[in-house]
């Protein structure tokens, strides 16, 4: 076996210190709080209390899945178009995708509040041409819209990066061998872009399922998500123990989802044909 040299160990040291302080230690603390009560004694009560949060968990997953699917449907053709356009057009389009990310997350979300409100910008404009008003704010749709809007770039970027590396002669080879436009996408472009789709789904689903604030602002507090519940336990209820157990379960859930996704991805390439 190769032994690591002393110099290499020294070089690795900062990363080891980093991961201990910022990854391992917080995880241990989450575990500790999740299984203790306020006095620090071991208890199952925090885990048992989670049965009241079944609906919140279910809603979080449902909204996150819907938002992820919408992101995928929007991003896939968009990434394809960007990857296929000329260099100057491509950088303009990428710029437009990135532009909202330069704004603060809270401001971005808050601005939708003014757009969607019952007497907001959209309803005022629709009213001027004799339509509406529509009830948009404080609905599940508004919450999902917020998620899609905030996390869309995280779906576009990985798919785009795969698509732009795709060898164009492969699509020519496919049409040479008798594929029409749709078959080229189904039999060549799609299977080859699966890795981009998988990382896009991961990067949208994870923040969506654990998000807070979006549902408080755009859902009017009626559709609390698991992220909001955790925030509440830490910020207003000061029940760190329950908050930690909620976080723990959320974490396990995300790991399980990712595991299933990756399993699915491995078979995808072959299964799609």
């Amino acid at each position: 076996m190769k032994t690591t040299s002393f110099a290499k160990k020294i070089l690795n040291a900062p990363y080891i210190v980093w991961s201990v302080i910022f990854i391992i230690a917080p995880l241990i603390m989450v575990f500790y709080y999740a299984f203790t009560d306020r006095s620090g004694a071991f208890t199952w009560n925090n885990i048992i209390a989670l049965k009241n949060y079944g609906e919140t968990f279910g809603r979080s997953i449902l909204y996150a899945v819907v938002a992820t699917l919408i992101c995928l449907v929007i991003s896939y053709p968009l990434a394809y178009i960007i990857a296929r356009s000329g260099a100057s057009k491509r950088s303009t389009l990428m710029m437009l995708i990135m532009l909202p990310m330069w704004m603060n997350f809270l401001i971005r979300t808050y601005s939708w509040l003014t757009l969607l409100a019952n007497k907001g910008v959209i309803n005022t404009i629709l009213g001027a041409i004799g339509l509406g008003p529509f009830h948009m704010i404080n609905t599940p749709g508004a919450v999902i819209l917020g998620m899609v809007y905030n996390f869309l770039p995280y779906m576009v970027l990985p798919i785009y990066s795969i698509m732009s590396k795709l060898d164009f002669s492969l699509t020519e080879a496919a049409s040479d061998l008798g594929c029409n436009g749709f078959q080229v996408i189904r039999r060549v472009i799609f299977p080859l872009s699966v890795p981009g789709i998988i990382s896009g789904i991961t990067m949208v689903f994870v923040p969506s399922v654990s998000t807070f604030y979006i549902s408080q602002k755009l859902g009017g507090g009626k559709y609390l998500l698991i992220g909001d519940s955790i925030e509440m336990q830490f910020q207003s209820a000061y029940n760190y123990n329950l908050g930690a157990s909620l976080s723990l379960v959320l974490m396990l859930m995300i790991i399980a989802c990712m595991f299933v996704m990756n399993k699915f991805a491995d078979d995808e390439g072959a299964a799609i044909i």
Binding site: S169, A173, A174, S175, L177, G178, N180, R187, P191, L192
Partner: peptide
Amino acid sequence: PAYKRQVNTIFQRYALFPHLNVYDNIAF
């Protein structure tokens, strides 16, 4: 369009489909 023509091409860099094995490439 290319896919309706009775001509086939061997590309400079072969353009084989990396997600398919030899059999599926030839059967494509």
